[in-house]
Design a protein around this nucleic acid. Sequence first.
DNA 1: TTGAAAGCGCTAACAC
DNA 2: GTGTTAGCGCTTTCAA
Lengths: 343, 343
Amino acid sequence: MRTAGRASLSDVAALAGVSVKTVSNVVNHYEHVSSAMRERVQRALDELDYRPNMSARHLRGGRSGLIALAVPELDAPYFAELCRHVVRAAERRGWTVLIDQTDGMPERERLVIAGIRAHLIDGVIFSPLASGAPELAVRSDSTPMVLLGERVSGGPIDHVGIDNVAAARAAVDHLLSLGRVRVAAIGKQQRRTAVTARLRARGYMSALRGRGLASDAALVMQVESYHRSDGATAMAALLALPKPPDAVFCFNDLLALGALRTLLQAGVRVPDDVALIGFDDIEESRYSTPTLSTVRPDKASIAETAVALLAARLDEGADTPPRGVTEPFELVPRETTGQRADQ
Amino acid sequence: MRTAGRASLSDVAALAGVSVKTVSNVVNHYEHVSSAMRERVQRALDELDYRPNMSARHLRGGRSGLIALAVPELDAPYFAELCRHVVRAAERRGWTVLIDQTDGMPERERLVIAGIRAHLIDGVIFSPLASGAPELAVRSDSTPMVLLGERVSGGPIDHVGIDNVAAARAAVDHLLSLGRVRVAAIGKQQRRTAVTARLRARGYMSALRGRGLASDAALVMQVESYHRSDGATAMAALLALPKPPDAVFCFNDLLALGALRTLLQAGVRVPDDVALIGFDDIEESRYSTPTLSTVRPDKASIAETAVALLAARLDEGADTPPRGVTEPFELVPRETTGQRADQ
DNA sequence: TTGAAAGCGCTAACAC
DNA sequence: GTGTTAGCGCTTTCAA
């Protein structure tokens, strides 16, 4: 066999003794080709191991078949799991996913918004951390974008997310339903752009209010980021309080798993002394001891919807108004809130 | 501002009143351009918000600036962490990473080997699960490939890995040094292509032999895959043995964390009754209770080397002999083997 | 039903 | 130092 994958349409055409157009017709399954001709061309295609040159196709046709997934960190389990689903969903539509890792850095996110990959990707699915409405509103690049998370008023940007207030309220209400009265929260953020944190904090407050409980500012812990280490540190601070909490709502599972480590190491019994609930339902939460109660957003749906929105936007252009989809969530009680059965 | 990112070189040239070549020179930082001209062109570039068309560039120059990372699962923490490093390493060389997720399925891996992305990517970093030497040897596609894992004799394929036998031996010897005498292993695989599993099993045997211990086939557990659930199931079987082990070496951290869950749930004390060690040093292992002892391959080095090998191969072509790089590993003792201090 | 030719945006070779 | 032109591989008119 010759050097594989290096043959062009005209090479194939030459071998088959036909025109380039005819080969192209066969490759693209154009209907009006005689079966004799189709067979003859196919033989030549096989012999030369022809593969279409995607760049040429893109240059001509305008679509690359590539979409970007721009997330803070690929190795944060939530994003890793989401990425898996996005890759699969994209695949079903013939798209390939390339990765932009922002680390939540403003400058990196700015590049994503500015369309650093214009002319390479057909669209981008973006999970911002350091960017909010102002940054997104001034976007001049016209590459279709789907936002993961909260709606950004202004720009014509589609988005998909969940009802964070309701989900957080459900989590905290679950803790309260166990009879806990000093419920702490870990995950508050200072940054203007931390919309999700703000909504979850609001859900937390709302649940307390719903049961007629006063909120205690000392029980609301601020964190730098959403890693296990942040949760561990915040939990240590809570334990050092004159009156420590009897339950903790963490704004994601990673924070909760870090908090759990601190609790167990300090000899605190979970859930007997302190109940715990997280957010995201990453796989890891099913295997900690005790297993972690959490809130489960439907990641597969989120991914599928994001890709679908991109596809729709690509078909319709920028004229139709921006769409927003709210995906469902589910409360998942496990051992850290006293559940017995495995899940 | 006009529709952003839609201007071509000739648009810019027209606006600036110069030739296409001159604009190209400025864009590509060609030296011999008068600074007056450079400034004039730059103004036009800015005004039209010019972005180079990557596909055109690729079509012309032959390189796409894209590499593929083909791994079984993005959401397995080891691969998620590795992917993070690969994206960063690629970025430093001006490459963008696209993801192929094989799920370890033979057919999907076959496509990767056959070069499903020929003419799109400059190279591919491939972590095979279901493919071995025979599958790789018949590879006809000429896209540079770097294999993650063991060497495949035959094909001119570069690879980067670690000394799995030595690493496994170190892990098991660590268990033996604690005075354990019935050391089990979880992670053996039936599949012909499971080279890594075979090497780790060999290291396990070698460590036993090194201390003059006989191996017990009943203590070597086979698993379907390397997830937490497999580890949990295998551990349950080990506990059901007439003479359960007093230590367990798991072929990766996920298996170990699943095993840990089973042990703790069964009321077995870790490490007092059963010591445990894993492999990979995923972040999660630092936060389980007790924290998980493990073997740490240098993922950042592995990623950097893989990308560097790709770059070198791209420069040299297929003529130079295939290279293999063995990256270092490190034993990381933690609480599951009686370590006190935090790590 | 098949062929010829133009052109997508870019770079490299060559001219001025 | 700057301009002209050919051509990368493909699809899309338009002709035959």
